[in-house]
Write a protein that binds this DNA or RNA. Structure first.
Lengths: 232, 232
DNA sequence: CGCAGTATTGATAGTTCTCAAAACGGGTGG
DNA sequence: CCACCCGTTTTGAGAACTATCAATACTGCG
Protein backbone atom coordinates (compact mmCIF):
# COMPACT_ATOMS: atom_id res chain seq x y z
CA UNK A 1 0.00 0.00 0.00
CA UNK A 2 2.70 2.46 0.98
CA UNK A 3 5.95 3.21 -0.68
CA UNK A 4 7.27 -0.33 -0.79
CA UNK A 5 10.17 -0.87 -3.10
CA UNK A 6 9.68 2.45 -4.75
CA UNK A 7 11.40 4.64 -2.25
CA UNK A 8 14.41 2.40 -2.27
CA UNK A 9 15.84 5.01 -4.58
CA UNK A 10 16.87 6.89 -1.52
CA UNK A 11 19.46 4.23 -1.04
CA UNK A 12 22.92 5.37 -1.90
CA UNK A 13 24.75 2.72 -3.85
CA UNK A 14 28.28 3.88 -3.16
CA UNK A 15 29.78 0.97 -1.30
CA UNK A 16 31.87 2.67 1.34
CA UNK A 17 35.45 1.61 1.84
CA UNK A 18 36.71 1.01 5.32
CA UNK A 19 40.38 1.79 5.25
CA UNK A 20 41.94 4.46 7.38
CA UNK A 21 45.44 5.81 7.16
CA UNK A 22 47.34 5.82 10.39
CA UNK A 23 49.02 9.10 11.14
CA UNK A 24 52.50 9.12 12.71
CA UNK A 25 52.55 9.37 16.48
CA UNK A 26 54.09 12.82 16.24
CA UNK A 27 50.76 14.11 15.04
CA UNK A 28 48.83 12.87 18.02
CA UNK A 29 47.55 15.54 20.30
CA UNK A 30 45.27 16.13 23.21
CA UNK A 31 42.20 18.10 22.16
CA UNK A 32 41.60 21.33 24.00
CA UNK A 33 38.04 20.41 24.88
CA UNK A 34 38.56 16.98 26.36
CA UNK A 35 41.68 17.84 28.27
CA UNK A 36 43.58 14.82 29.42
CA UNK A 37 42.25 12.55 26.73
CA UNK A 38 44.73 11.80 24.02
CA UNK A 39 43.54 10.46 20.72
CA UNK A 40 44.87 8.86 17.59
CA UNK A 41 44.39 10.93 14.48
CA UNK A 42 43.32 9.11 11.33
CA UNK A 43 42.39 10.06 7.80
CA UNK A 44 39.45 8.59 5.95
CA UNK A 45 38.85 9.02 2.26
CA UNK A 46 35.64 10.49 0.91
CA UNK A 47 32.91 7.85 0.83
CA UNK A 48 34.45 5.68 3.54
CA UNK A 49 32.17 4.09 6.10
CA UNK A 50 33.73 5.02 9.42
CA UNK A 51 31.36 3.01 11.55
CA UNK A 52 28.45 0.82 10.52
CA UNK A 53 25.11 0.63 12.29
CA UNK A 54 25.37 -1.93 15.09
CA UNK A 55 29.15 -1.92 15.06
CA UNK A 56 30.61 -2.26 18.54
CA UNK A 57 31.21 1.25 19.88
CA UNK A 58 34.94 1.19 20.46
CA UNK A 59 35.73 4.81 19.86
CA UNK A 60 34.40 8.30 20.23
CA UNK A 61 35.23 10.44 17.23
CA UNK A 62 36.01 14.11 16.92
CA UNK A 63 36.15 15.70 13.51
CA UNK A 64 39.38 17.57 12.94
CA UNK A 65 38.66 18.40 9.33
CA UNK A 66 36.04 17.47 6.78
CA UNK A 67 32.40 16.45 7.07
CA UNK A 68 30.81 13.24 8.28
CA UNK A 69 27.19 12.16 7.98
CA UNK A 70 25.56 9.95 10.57
CA UNK A 71 22.62 8.03 9.24
CA UNK A 72 20.12 5.31 9.88
CA UNK A 73 18.64 3.04 7.26
CA UNK A 74 15.23 1.46 6.99
CA UNK A 75 15.15 -2.12 5.77
CA UNK A 76 14.04 -1.07 2.29
CA UNK A 77 16.84 1.45 1.90
CA UNK A 78 15.13 4.66 2.94
CA UNK A 79 17.73 6.73 4.74
CA UNK A 80 17.62 9.43 7.37
CA UNK A 81 20.68 11.50 8.10
CA UNK A 82 20.59 12.52 11.74
CA UNK A 83 23.41 15.01 11.66
CA UNK A 84 26.39 16.33 9.79
CA UNK A 85 29.52 16.38 11.93
CA UNK A 86 31.98 19.10 10.99
CA UNK A 87 35.26 20.41 12.41
CA UNK A 88 35.16 20.25 16.19
CA UNK A 89 32.03 18.10 16.38
CA UNK A 90 31.90 14.74 18.07
CA UNK A 91 30.05 11.62 17.04
CA UNK A 92 29.90 7.99 18.08
CA UNK A 93 29.32 8.74 21.75
CA UNK A 94 26.25 6.71 22.60
CA UNK A 95 24.46 4.98 25.40
CA UNK A 96 24.65 1.46 24.08
CA UNK A 97 27.75 -0.58 23.41
CA UNK A 98 26.96 -0.63 19.71
CA UNK A 99 26.52 2.30 17.34
CA UNK A 100 22.94 3.28 16.69
CA UNK A 101 23.78 4.82 13.34
CA UNK A 102 26.35 4.56 10.61
CA UNK A 103 28.92 7.29 10.05
CA UNK A 104 30.35 7.97 6.62
CA UNK A 105 32.92 10.41 5.31
CA UNK A 106 31.27 12.93 2.98
CA UNK A 107 34.60 14.53 2.18
CA UNK A 108 38.09 13.33 2.96
CA UNK A 109 38.13 13.67 6.71
CA UNK A 110 40.60 13.80 9.53
CA UNK A 111 39.31 12.35 12.78
CA UNK A 112 40.59 12.06 16.29
CA UNK A 113 39.68 8.70 17.78
CA UNK A 114 39.28 8.40 21.52
CA UNK A 115 38.98 4.97 23.04
CA UNK A 116 35.55 4.72 24.59
CA UNK A 117 36.64 2.71 27.60
CA UNK A 118 39.58 5.01 28.20
CA UNK A 119 37.24 7.96 28.07
CA UNK A 120 34.89 6.44 30.60
CA UNK A 121 37.76 5.52 32.86
CA UNK A 122 39.14 9.03 32.64
CA UNK A 123 35.68 10.44 33.28
CA UNK A 124 35.51 8.37 36.45
CA UNK A 125 38.65 10.05 37.70
CA UNK A 126 38.25 13.54 36.37
CA UNK A 127 34.86 15.23 36.82
CA UNK A 128 35.77 17.81 34.18
CA UNK A 129 36.03 15.08 31.57
CA UNK A 130 32.81 13.50 32.76
CA UNK A 131 31.13 16.86 32.44
CA UNK A 132 32.47 17.34 28.93
CA UNK A 133 31.26 13.93 27.81
CA UNK A 134 27.84 14.77 29.16
CA UNK A 135 27.80 18.18 27.46
CA UNK A 136 28.72 16.71 24.11
CA UNK A 137 25.84 14.28 24.43
CA UNK A 138 23.40 16.87 25.72
CA UNK A 139 24.17 19.22 22.86
CA UNK A 140 23.60 16.39 20.43
CA UNK A 141 20.24 15.75 22.07
CA UNK A 142 19.27 19.40 21.80
CA UNK A 143 20.21 19.46 18.12
CA UNK A 144 18.32 16.24 17.48
CA UNK A 145 15.18 17.64 19.05
CA UNK A 146 15.38 20.82 17.03
CA UNK A 147 15.81 18.63 13.99
CA UNK A 148 12.73 16.63 14.92
CA UNK A 149 10.71 19.83 14.89
CA UNK A 150 11.99 20.54 11.41
CA UNK A 151 11.25 17.02 10.17
CA UNK A 152 7.81 16.80 11.66
CA UNK A 153 6.41 20.26 11.18
CA UNK A 154 8.22 22.31 8.57
CA UNK A 155 7.45 22.62 4.87
CA UNK A 156 10.04 21.95 2.18
CA UNK A 157 10.72 25.65 1.79
CA UNK A 158 11.18 26.10 5.52
CA UNK A 159 13.39 23.03 5.72
CA UNK A 160 15.71 24.30 3.02
CA UNK A 161 15.72 27.76 4.58
CA UNK A 162 16.58 26.34 7.98
CA UNK A 163 19.24 24.14 6.48
CA UNK A 164 21.00 26.94 4.62
CA UNK A 165 20.88 29.11 7.69
CA UNK A 166 22.24 26.33 9.88
CA UNK A 167 25.10 25.72 7.48
CA UNK A 168 25.87 29.42 7.26
CA UNK A 169 25.97 29.68 11.04
CA UNK A 170 28.24 26.68 11.36
CA UNK A 171 30.59 28.15 8.81
CA UNK A 172 30.57 31.49 10.57
CA UNK A 173 29.48 33.40 7.52
CA UNK A 174 26.06 34.81 6.86
CA UNK A 175 26.54 35.73 3.24
CA UNK A 176 27.94 32.62 1.67
CA UNK A 177 27.81 28.86 2.19
CA UNK A 178 29.88 26.00 0.87
CA UNK A 179 27.92 22.75 0.93
CA UNK A 180 30.16 19.71 1.32
CA UNK A 181 27.28 17.29 0.81
CA UNK A 182 25.28 16.16 -2.22
CA UNK A 183 21.63 16.93 -2.89
CA UNK A 184 20.85 13.36 -1.88
CA UNK A 185 22.49 13.95 1.50
CA UNK A 186 20.55 17.15 1.97
CA UNK A 187 17.33 15.36 1.03
CA UNK A 188 18.01 12.55 3.49
CA UNK A 189 18.82 15.09 6.19
CA UNK A 190 15.63 17.06 5.64
CA UNK A 191 13.25 14.19 4.97
CA UNK A 192 12.68 15.21 1.35
CA UNK A 193 13.52 13.82 -2.07
CA UNK A 194 16.42 15.03 -4.12
CA UNK A 195 14.03 16.54 -6.66
CA UNK A 196 12.21 18.60 -4.05
CA UNK A 197 15.52 19.86 -2.67
CA UNK A 198 16.60 20.89 -6.13
CA UNK A 199 13.30 22.54 -7.00
CA UNK A 200 13.14 24.40 -3.71
CA UNK A 201 16.68 25.71 -4.14
CA UNK A 202 15.73 26.94 -7.59
CA UNK A 203 12.60 28.51 -6.16
CA UNK A 204 14.67 30.39 -3.57
CA UNK A 205 16.99 31.55 -6.31
CA UNK A 206 14.12 32.76 -8.48
CA UNK A 207 12.80 34.67 -5.49
CA UNK A 208 16.17 36.36 -5.14
CA UNK A 209 16.76 34.94 -1.69
CA UNK A 210 19.86 33.01 -2.66
CA UNK A 211 22.16 32.66 -5.62
CA UNK A 212 23.48 29.26 -6.71
CA UNK A 213 27.01 30.04 -7.84
CA UNK A 214 27.42 26.33 -8.32
CA UNK A 215 25.23 23.61 -6.87
CA UNK A 216 27.52 23.44 -3.84
CA UNK A 217 28.32 27.10 -3.44
CA UNK A 218 25.45 29.32 -2.35
CA UNK A 219 25.32 33.06 -1.86
CA UNK A 220 22.76 34.23 0.66
CA UNK A 221 21.27 37.34 -0.86
CA UNK A 222 18.65 37.94 1.82
CA UNK A 223 19.64 36.26 5.06
CA UNK A 224 16.67 37.88 6.78
CA UNK A 225 14.35 36.09 4.39
CA UNK A 226 16.01 32.76 5.29
CA UNK A 227 15.67 33.62 8.96
CA UNK A 228 11.99 34.30 8.44
CA UNK A 229 11.62 30.94 6.73
CA UNK A 230 13.32 28.96 9.44
CA UNK A 231 10.71 30.23 11.86
CA UNK A 232 12.51 30.09 15.18
CA UNK B 1 3.04 30.28 0.00
CA UNK B 2 3.25 27.56 2.58
CA UNK B 3 0.90 26.75 5.36
CA UNK B 4 0.80 30.16 6.95
CA UNK B 5 -1.92 30.69 9.45
CA UNK B 6 -3.72 27.57 8.37
CA UNK B 7 -1.75 25.04 10.34
CA UNK B 8 -2.20 27.04 13.47
CA UNK B 9 -4.92 24.57 14.22
CA UNK B 10 -2.23 22.32 15.62
CA UNK B 11 -2.05 24.72 18.48
CA UNK B 12 -3.59 23.38 21.63
CA UNK B 13 -5.75 25.99 23.31
CA UNK B 14 -5.77 24.51 26.79
CA UNK B 15 -3.96 27.16 28.81
CA UNK B 16 -1.89 25.05 31.20
CA UNK B 17 -1.96 25.79 34.84
CA UNK B 18 1.26 25.95 36.76
CA UNK B 19 0.46 24.91 40.27
CA UNK B 20 2.03 21.93 41.92
CA UNK B 21 1.05 20.33 45.20
CA UNK B 22 3.86 19.87 47.66
CA UNK B 23 4.07 16.40 49.11
CA UNK B 24 4.99 15.91 52.80
CA UNK B 25 8.68 15.33 53.45
CA UNK B 26 7.94 11.80 54.58
CA UNK B 27 7.28 10.93 50.98
CA UNK B 28 10.69 12.03 49.79
CA UNK B 29 12.91 9.25 48.68
CA UNK B 30 16.16 8.56 46.91
CA UNK B 31 15.56 6.97 43.53
CA UNK B 32 17.24 3.65 42.96
CA UNK B 33 18.81 4.79 39.71
CA UNK B 34 20.38 8.04 40.82
CA UNK B 35 21.62 6.79 44.13
CA UNK B 36 22.62 9.55 46.43
CA UNK B 37 20.38 12.15 44.89
CA UNK B 38 17.31 12.92 46.90
CA UNK B 39 14.40 14.67 45.30
CA UNK B 40 11.21 16.42 46.21
CA UNK B 41 8.08 14.68 45.00
CA UNK B 42 5.33 16.86 43.56
CA UNK B 43 1.97 16.31 41.95
CA UNK B 44 0.81 18.17 38.87
CA UNK B 45 -2.75 18.12 37.59
CA UNK B 46 -3.58 17.02 34.07
CA UNK B 47 -2.94 19.86 31.64
CA UNK B 48 -0.41 21.65 33.81
CA UNK B 49 2.63 23.19 32.17
CA UNK B 50 5.54 21.84 34.20
CA UNK B 51 8.21 23.83 32.46
CA UNK B 52 7.90 26.32 29.60
CA UNK B 53 10.26 26.62 26.67
CA UNK B 54 13.15 28.87 27.64
CA UNK B 55 12.42 28.58 31.35
CA UNK B 56 15.60 28.51 33.42
CA UNK B 57 16.54 24.85 33.91
CA UNK B 58 16.42 24.56 37.68
CA UNK B 59 15.41 20.96 38.02
CA UNK B 60 15.77 17.57 36.47
CA UNK B 61 12.51 15.65 36.57
CA UNK B 62 11.79 11.96 36.93
CA UNK B 63 8.30 10.68 36.32
CA UNK B 64 7.00 8.62 39.20
CA UNK B 65 3.54 8.19 37.77
CA UNK B 66 1.60 9.55 34.85
CA UNK B 67 2.62 10.82 31.43
CA UNK B 68 4.34 14.02 30.38
CA UNK B 69 4.80 15.41 26.88
CA UNK B 70 7.81 17.49 25.94
CA UNK B 71 7.18 19.75 22.99
CA UNK B 72 8.48 22.59 20.91
CA UNK B 73 6.35 25.19 19.20
CA UNK B 74 6.84 27.04 15.95
CA UNK B 75 5.94 30.72 15.98
CA UNK B 76 2.66 30.06 14.17
CA UNK B 77 1.56 27.39 16.61
CA UNK B 78 2.64 24.24 14.84
CA UNK B 79 3.78 21.84 17.52
CA UNK B 80 6.17 18.91 17.63
CA UNK B 81 6.17 16.56 20.57
CA UNK B 82 9.67 15.22 21.05
CA UNK B 83 8.89 12.54 23.56
CA UNK B 84 6.41 11.17 26.03
CA UNK B 85 7.93 10.68 29.47
CA UNK B 86 6.34 7.88 31.47
CA UNK B 87 7.03 6.18 34.81
CA UNK B 88 10.77 6.02 35.39
CA UNK B 89 11.69 8.37 32.57
CA UNK B 90 13.63 11.58 33.05
CA UNK B 91 13.20 14.91 31.34
CA UNK B 92 14.51 18.42 31.71
CA UNK B 93 18.16 17.40 31.72
CA UNK B 94 19.71 19.57 29.06
CA UNK B 95 22.92 21.18 27.93
CA UNK B 96 21.84 24.77 28.21
CA UNK B 97 20.77 26.61 31.33
CA UNK B 98 17.28 27.05 29.91
CA UNK B 99 14.82 24.41 28.79
CA UNK B 100 14.77 23.77 25.07
CA UNK B 101 11.23 22.47 25.15
CA UNK B 102 8.10 22.78 27.23
CA UNK B 103 6.87 19.91 29.39
CA UNK B 104 3.19 19.43 30.13
CA UNK B 105 1.26 16.93 32.17
CA UNK B 106 -0.92 14.78 29.91
CA UNK B 107 -2.45 12.99 32.89
CA UNK B 108 -2.23 13.84 36.55
CA UNK B 109 1.43 13.18 37.24
CA UNK B 110 3.73 12.58 40.15
CA UNK B 111 7.25 13.83 39.59
CA UNK B 112 10.48 13.72 41.49
CA UNK B 113 12.37 17.01 41.17
CA UNK B 114 16.13 16.99 41.47
CA UNK B 115 17.93 20.29 41.76
CA UNK B 116 20.10 20.65 38.70
CA UNK B 117 23.01 22.31 40.48
CA UNK B 118 22.89 19.75 43.24
CA UNK B 119 22.96 16.99 40.65
CA UNK B 120 25.99 18.46 38.94
CA UNK B 121 27.76 18.96 42.24
CA UNK B 122 27.02 15.39 43.24
CA UNK B 123 28.19 14.20 39.83
CA UNK B 124 31.48 16.00 40.39
CA UNK B 125 32.00 13.99 43.55
CA UNK B 126 30.50 10.66 42.62
CA UNK B 127 31.44 9.20 39.23
CA UNK B 128 28.49 6.79 39.40
CA UNK B 129 26.08 9.72 39.46
CA UNK B 130 27.96 11.42 36.65
CA UNK B 131 27.71 8.24 34.65
CA UNK B 132 24.00 7.97 35.29
CA UNK B 133 23.36 11.55 34.22
CA UNK B 134 25.25 10.83 31.03
CA UNK B 135 23.34 7.63 30.38
CA UNK B 136 19.99 9.30 30.83
CA UNK B 137 21.02 11.91 28.29
CA UNK B 138 22.54 9.41 25.89
CA UNK B 139 19.40 7.28 25.91
CA UNK B 140 17.35 10.36 25.18
CA UNK B 141 19.63 11.09 22.24
CA UNK B 142 19.26 7.57 20.91
CA UNK B 143 15.48 7.78 21.17
CA UNK B 144 15.44 11.17 19.49
CA UNK B 145 17.46 9.88 16.57
CA UNK B 146 15.19 6.89 16.11
CA UNK B 147 12.30 9.31 16.19
CA UNK B 148 13.93 11.46 13.52
CA UNK B 149 14.04 8.42 11.25
CA UNK B 150 10.33 7.95 11.82
CA UNK B 151 9.51 11.61 11.20
CA UNK B 152 11.63 11.94 8.10
CA UNK B 153 11.14 8.67 6.33
CA UNK B 154 8.10 6.72 7.45
CA UNK B 155 4.59 6.81 6.01
CA UNK B 156 1.54 7.53 8.12
CA UNK B 157 0.74 3.84 8.39
CA UNK B 158 4.28 3.02 9.46
CA UNK B 159 4.31 5.88 11.94
CA UNK B 160 1.14 4.69 13.63
CA UNK B 161 2.39 1.11 13.59
CA UNK B 162 5.69 2.14 15.17
CA UNK B 163 3.88 4.26 17.71
CA UNK B 164 1.53 1.52 18.85
CA UNK B 165 4.41 -0.91 19.08
CA UNK B 166 6.50 1.55 21.07
CA UNK B 167 3.66 2.16 23.50
CA UNK B 168 3.03 -1.56 23.85
CA UNK B 169 6.69 -2.17 24.62
CA UNK B 170 6.80 0.61 27.17
CA UNK B 171 3.75 -0.81 28.88
CA UNK B 172 5.24 -4.27 28.86
CA UNK B 173 2.30 -5.81 27.08
CA UNK B 174 2.18 -6.87 23.47
CA UNK B 175 -1.54 -7.50 23.21
CA UNK B 176 -3.11 -4.38 24.60
CA UNK B 177 -2.28 -0.69 24.91
CA UNK B 178 -3.74 2.12 26.96
CA UNK B 179 -3.07 5.48 25.36
CA UNK B 180 -2.86 8.27 27.91
CA UNK B 181 -2.64 10.96 25.22
CA UNK B 182 -5.15 12.49 22.82
CA UNK B 183 -5.20 12.07 19.06
CA UNK B 184 -3.79 15.59 18.81
CA UNK B 185 -0.83 14.58 20.96
CA UNK B 186 -0.24 11.50 18.84
CA UNK B 187 -0.45 13.62 15.70
CA UNK B 188 2.07 16.12 17.05
CA UNK B 189 4.37 13.31 18.09
CA UNK B 190 4.28 11.64 14.69
CA UNK B 191 4.28 14.73 12.50
CA UNK B 192 0.77 14.09 11.21
CA UNK B 193 -2.63 15.74 11.55
CA UNK B 194 -5.27 14.51 13.91
CA UNK B 195 -7.43 13.43 10.97
CA UNK B 196 -4.71 11.30 9.47
CA UNK B 197 -4.06 9.65 12.83
CA UNK B 198 -7.73 8.85 13.17
CA UNK B 199 -8.10 7.56 9.63
CA UNK B 200 -4.98 5.41 9.90
CA UNK B 201 -6.17 3.87 13.14
CA UNK B 202 -9.47 3.05 11.48
CA UNK B 203 -7.60 1.59 8.55
CA UNK B 204 -5.59 -0.67 10.86
CA UNK B 205 -8.79 -1.74 12.53
CA UNK B 206 -10.47 -2.54 9.21
CA UNK B 207 -7.46 -4.61 8.29
CA UNK B 208 -7.86 -6.58 11.50
CA UNK B 209 -4.47 -5.52 12.83
CA UNK B 210 -5.86 -3.76 15.86
CA UNK B 211 -9.17 -3.31 17.62
CA UNK B 212 -10.22 0.05 19.04
CA UNK B 213 -12.05 -0.89 22.21
CA UNK B 214 -12.32 2.81 22.88
CA UNK B 215 -10.27 5.54 21.25
CA UNK B 216 -7.73 5.26 24.05
CA UNK B 217 -7.76 1.52 24.56
CA UNK B 218 -6.33 -0.56 21.74
CA UNK B 219 -6.10 -4.30 21.34
CA UNK B 220 -3.22 -5.48 19.20
CA UNK B 221 -4.67 -8.32 17.17
CA UNK B 222 -1.62 -8.98 15.05
CA UNK B 223 1.52 -7.68 16.75
CA UNK B 224 3.63 -9.20 14.00
CA UNK B 225 1.87 -7.03 11.47
CA UNK B 226 2.68 -3.96 13.55
CA UNK B 227 6.28 -5.09 13.79
CA UNK B 228 6.41 -5.45 10.03
CA UNK B 229 5.03 -1.94 9.66
CA UNK B 230 7.53 -0.34 12.00
CA UNK B 231 10.27 -1.64 9.74
CA UNK B 232 13.22 -1.85 12.06
C1' DC C 1 36.15 14.58 -26.07
C1' DG C 2 33.22 11.39 -24.02
C1' DC C 3 31.72 9.07 -19.95
C1' DA C 4 29.52 8.58 -15.39
C1' DG C 5 27.64 10.49 -11.73
C1' DT C 6 25.06 14.47 -10.13
C1' DA C 7 21.72 17.99 -10.57
C1' DT C 8 17.83 20.21 -12.74
C1' DT C 9 13.44 20.38 -14.92
C1' DG C 10 8.91 18.45 -16.53
C1' DA C 11 4.56 15.93 -16.16
C1' DT C 12 1.73 13.27 -13.31
C1' DA C 13 0.24 10.63 -9.34
C1' DG C 14 -0.55 10.05 -4.58
C1' DT C 15 -0.34 10.66 0.30
C1' DT C 16 -1.46 13.77 3.56
C1' DC C 17 -3.56 18.13 4.68
C1' DT C 18 -7.43 21.25 4.89
C1' DC C 19 -12.02 22.48 5.56
C1' DA C 20 -16.45 20.82 7.09
C1' DA C 21 -19.81 18.16 9.33
C1' DA C 22 -21.44 14.40 11.85
C1' DA C 23 -20.79 10.96 15.61
C1' DC C 24 -19.25 9.90 20.03
C1' DG C 25 -18.25 10.21 25.10
C1' DG C 26 -18.04 11.99 29.55
C1' DG C 27 -19.66 15.00 32.90
C1' DT C 28 -23.27 18.15 34.83
C1' DG C 29 -27.49 19.73 36.35
C1' DG C 30 -32.24 19.32 36.54
C1' DC D 1 -31.78 8.75 35.70
C1' DC D 2 -31.87 11.28 31.67
C1' DA D 3 -31.25 15.33 28.69
C1' DC D 4 -27.96 18.49 27.43
C1' DC D 5 -23.35 20.42 26.49
C1' DC D 6 -18.79 20.56 25.20
C1' DG D 7 -14.71 18.68 23.81
C1' DT D 8 -12.86 14.83 21.25
C1' DT D 9 -12.93 11.69 17.54
C1' DT D 10 -14.39 10.06 13.23
C1' DT D 11 -15.72 10.52 8.53
C1' DG D 12 -16.24 12.98 3.97
C1' DA D 13 -14.82 15.71 -0.08
C1' DG D 14 -11.52 18.26 -2.24
C1' DA D 15 -7.03 20.74 -2.50
C1' DA D 16 -2.16 20.92 -1.97
C1' DC D 17 2.36 19.64 -1.28
C1' DT D 18 5.67 16.43 -2.18
C1' DA D 19 6.89 12.10 -4.37
C1' DT D 20 7.44 9.51 -8.48
C1' DC D 21 8.78 8.57 -13.04
C1' DA D 22 11.28 10.33 -16.90
C1' DA D 23 14.18 13.06 -19.61
C1' DT D 24 17.46 16.59 -20.15
C1' DA D 25 21.45 19.45 -18.48
C1' DC D 26 25.73 19.73 -15.91
C1' DT D 27 30.34 18.79 -14.03
C1' DG D 28 34.44 16.65 -13.12
C1' DC D 29 37.61 13.58 -14.83
C1' DG D 30 40.12 9.98 -17.43
Amino acid sequence: MQMSVATARNYVPESPRRTAQVIPAAHRFAAPDVSGLAGVVLHYARGTEIVAEEDPAEYIYQVVEGTVRSCKLLSDGRRQIGAFAMAGDYFGLEARATHGYAAEAITDVTLRLINRNAAFTAAGQDPAIARTLWEVTAKGLDASQRHALLLGRKTALEKIGSFLQEMAERQGCDAEVELPMSRQDIADYLGLTIETVSRTMTQLESAGTICLETSRHVLLRRPSELARLSLC
